[in-house]
């Protein structure tokens, strides 16, 4: 699946998106998997209360299942308008 990062998550991880092959069942599992990869992921996902998630471009939460999903995005709380 495609994993996207925005705002300071993009800056901390150092890339806007990447293709991730994973068996993770939920978003929370995917976060754990990414955190174990490299310190920059661990740093970006250190405080999950500051991170929002969208699955296939719909806002959701960490419990969201990933079966059949093509796009997951992580970003800080939104500041539009």
């Amino acid at each position: 699946m495609q994993v996207l990062y925005f705002a300071w998550l993009r800056e901390r991880i150092g890339l806007p998106k990447e293709q991730v092959e994973t068996e993770a069942e939920t978003v929370a599992d995917l976060v754990l998997e990414l955190k174990s990869r490299e310190p920059r992921y661990a740093a970006a996902f250190e405080d999950m209360s500051a991170v929002r998630v969208a699955v296939d471009q719909e806002l959701t939460d960490l419990d969201a299942p990933l079966k059949g999903v093509s796009e997951v995005a992580f970003f800080p709380p939104m500041t539009g308008g």
Binding site: F6, A7, L59, A73, F75, P76, M78, T79, G80, G81
Partner: peptide, 17 residues
């Protein structure tokens, strides 16, 4: 729109809002 549309503001020299 303020908190449900995926926009993020970054101020020059100040960082993410």
């Amino acid at each position: 729109l303020k908190s449900r549309a995926p926009f993020w503001k970054k101020e020059a020299g100040q960082g993410w809002v």
